[in-house]
C-alpha cells in the first residue's frame, strides 16, 4: 500500500513554521521552524534521544499544547477531537471496565446523556475486533497487564474514528511480543484504513522494520525526515543516537573477537545463524578458511554439531568442547 515514495498526495496534517516549546518568562524552545506533513496511509516513527521534546511535539500536534508560533491544520482545519486521537503516557486508572474505557472513544460524538447509537456500537465493536481485545471487554482495567491495557487504549483511540492517530511511546515497558504486535497493528491500521499514524518511540529496531517514514529529532531543533534505510546508510542514526557497540548497518551488537581463534562453520538456515551468533558472542571469529571446522547436520529435526569428529547435541556442548580444546 501507499508509501510516500509514490506520489504527490494531499497531506492530512500540515504544519507551517511551527515553533514548539514552553512559553513563559524563561521560554524553552524545543523545535523551531517545523514544516511537517503527515500523509494518509503512512506510519511515521518519530525518534530521538530522551528529553529532546518528542512528547511535547506530539501533544502540540494533537492540540493539547499551545505552539509558540506557527500553525497546525488537519485537512485545512484546526485539529479537533474528531480529527485526532491520542494514546499518551499518562497513567490511566479508575474503576472502569475495558469496554467502558473503549467507549470513551465515542465521547466526541455523544451528547451529555451518553446514549450510544448503533453506529457508535459498531465503531466500538470494530475497534475491539481489530485489536483482538474481545476477551477483555468486561475485565476491570486494573486487572489487565501492561500490554493488554495498551491495546485497550489503542482500541479506544481507534473507536474515535479519526483520520489521524498520535501515539506516545506505545511500546515502552512491554515485552518483545507485545511490542511487535502493537507496531504491526499500527502499521496495518495506517495501510488498510488509510490513516496517518505518528508514533513517538525510542525502539530503534522496531521502528526501522515497521515505519514507512522516520522523523529524527536531535539536531538544530529541527527534524530529519527520510525512509528508515536511507537514514541508516547515510549515518544519521549513528550521529544522533551516538550508538555504542551496535552496528546499525548489520543490525547487530558488535562483538570483539577477543579469543583470536577462528572457526569455519558449515550449515544453513536459522541453525547456521544462531550458531554463528553464539560463536561471535563468545569471542570466536567465524571465517571460511579457519583450521577448526564445525559442521551442522540437520537430520529429521535432530540437530548435531560435529567438531573434530566429536558430536555435540547442543550449542552449549559445542562451546564447552571448543573451550576445553582450543585449536
Amino acid at each position: 500500500m501507499g508509501l510516500s515514495i509514490e506520489s504527490e498526495r494531499i497531506p492530512l496534517l500540515t504544519t507551517v513554521k511551527l515553533d514548539v516549546g514552553f512559553a513563559g518568562n524563561l521560554e524553552i524552545l524545543l523545535f523551531t521552524n517545523l514544516d511537517l506533513a503527515l500523509m494518509p496511509g503512512e506510519l511515521v516513527c518519530f525518534m530521538g534521544p530522551n528529553g529532546v521534546g518528542k512528547s511535547t511535539l506530539l501533544r502540540t500536534l494533537a492540540g493539547l499544547h499551545k505552539p509558540l508560533h506557527g500553525t497546525i491544520t488537519v485537512y485545512g482545519n484546526k485539529a479537533s477531537e474528531q480529527s485526532v486521537a491520542v494514546v499518551l503516557t499518562d497513567k490511566v486508572g479508575g474503576n472502569l471496565t475495558a469496554l467502558e474505557l473503549i467507549t470513551y472513544g465515542r465521547y466526541p460524538y455523544l451528547d451529555w446523556s451518553l446514549n450510544l447509537t448503533q453506529a457508535d456500537k459498531d465503531s466500538i465493536d470494530e475497534a475491539i475486533s481489530v485489536t483482538h481485545v474481545g476477551h477483555l471487554r468486561d475485565k476491570k482495567i486494573y486487572e489487565l497487564s501492561d500490554g493488554q491495557l495498551q491495546m485497550v487504549m489503542i482500541a479506544r483511540a481507534l473507536a474515535q474514528e479519526t483520520p489521524l492517530l498520535l501515539l506516545d511511546e506505545p511500546t515502552s515497558h512491554l515485552d518483545l511480543n507485545n511490542r511487535v504486535e502493537i507496531m504491526n497493528l499500527l502499521r496495518q491500521v495506517a495501510h488498510k484504513k488509510n490513516k496517518a499514524v505518528l508514533v513517538a518511540t525510542h525502539e530503534l529496531d522496531l521502528a526501522l522494520q515497521t515505519a514507512d517514514l522516520i522523523w529524527l529529532a536531535g539536531e538544530n531543533k529541527n527534524l530529519l525526515k527520510g525512509i528508515p534505510e536511507d537514514l541508516v546508510l547515510d549515518g544519521s542514526f549513528d550521529k544522533i543516537f551516538q550508538l555504542k557497540g551496535f552496528d546499525l548497518k548489520t543490525g547487530k551488537v558488535r562483538h570483539e573477537a577477543w579469543r583470536g581463534v577462528a572457526v569455519s562453520l558449515e550449515g544453513n538456515g536459522p541453525e547456521y545463524l544462531w550458531t554463528k551468533n553464539a560463536l561471535e558472542r563468545n569471542g570466536f571469529t567465524v571465517s571460511p578458511d579457519a583450521q577448526t571446522s564445525v559442521q551442522i547436520i540437520n537430520q529429521r529435526q535432530n540437530l548435531l554439531w560435529i567438531i573434530n569428529k566429536k558430536q555435540c547435541a547442543s550449542i552449549k556442548e559445542l562451546l564447552i568442547t571448543l573451550n576445553s580444546n582450543p585449536a
Binding site: 492540540g63 493539547l64 477531537e81 497513567k91 465521547y107
Partner: peptide
Amino acid sequence: FFLIKSLNAWLLGDNYARSLGI
C-alpha cells in the same frame, strides 16, 4: 447530571479529557 460526560472523562486526566473534546 448534565455534566456526566465531563465527569467521566475527567477520570482519565486532563490531557485525555481534552483529547475527547472536554
